[in-house]
Amino acid sequence: MTRLLDFFRFLGAQVVERIWRLGYFTRFAVAVLFKSGAALVRFQLTLREIWFAGVLSLIIILVSGLFVGLVLGLQGYEILQRFGSAEALGTMVALSLLRELGPVVAGLLFASRAGSAITAEIGLMKATEQLKAMDMMAVDPVARVVAPRFWGGVISMPLLAALFSSMGIFGGWLIGVVFIGVDDGAFWSSMQASVDFRHDIWNGIFKSIVFGVAVSLIAVFEGYDSEPTAEGVSRAITRTVVTSALTILALDFVLTSFMFRGIS
């Protein structure tokens, strides 16, 4: 009987803790938005964070995009030629990249490259009392440190996703047209005929914007909320990557079910 009560007590404590943390996260998110003035007016602050989140992620995004495209080209051709429709390779590569793989894989890479770096930086600033020192100098750390990193991530993510998709399509073209010998004209025209700008490309960009907001917010929150010790910071980094990955995949399902419902 007491074991049962203990179990319910444990369950209740877990639920209360989760809800409390969610509320805290929401308040933090609202505070970041309200204190974004400096990050947007003194844009140099945000520019530096675009450099950290965007430019430094370029290599991993471009290389991964290329390889994903190459694999899509190989596997796609292998399957499509069984049905005698190898010309549809362009369509298959482009649609899978633009709708799903581009935003999702770029988002996962962004979370592990830029998101973890953002958490580490803010966490270390907290652990070494830099945030407290800033607060004592009458400079709001949320406005000066958190908001520029958030916006840097939000701006970088859709750009990275677009680069990832373009690189992937290039990779698919390289395998399909250059190495295997699918007709160049058929590759591009079948792609153009079935990829719709608003429906496919814009929805993909919209997804990447949503993922950018989610990952950046999780990264700055975990850093700001981390325990101010070396161990606490490393735990926060792990949480950023895990939470971001799960959030991206869950959001992707929700967004996809809204965007592509009832349309073939």
Binding site: A94, A162, S166, D196
Partner: peptide
């Protein structure tokens, strides 16, 4: 240098978006 790199990054990303818009897709109804 930072400004240069960020400018470069944004420029090629916009180039990629133009590529997607013009070469990969068609505008339906537009």
């Amino acid at each position: 240098m930072l400004d240069l790199w960020v400018g470069f990054f944004v420029a090629i990303a916009i180039g990629a978006m133009l590529f997607l818009a013009l070469k990969v897709s068609s505008f339906s109804g537009i």
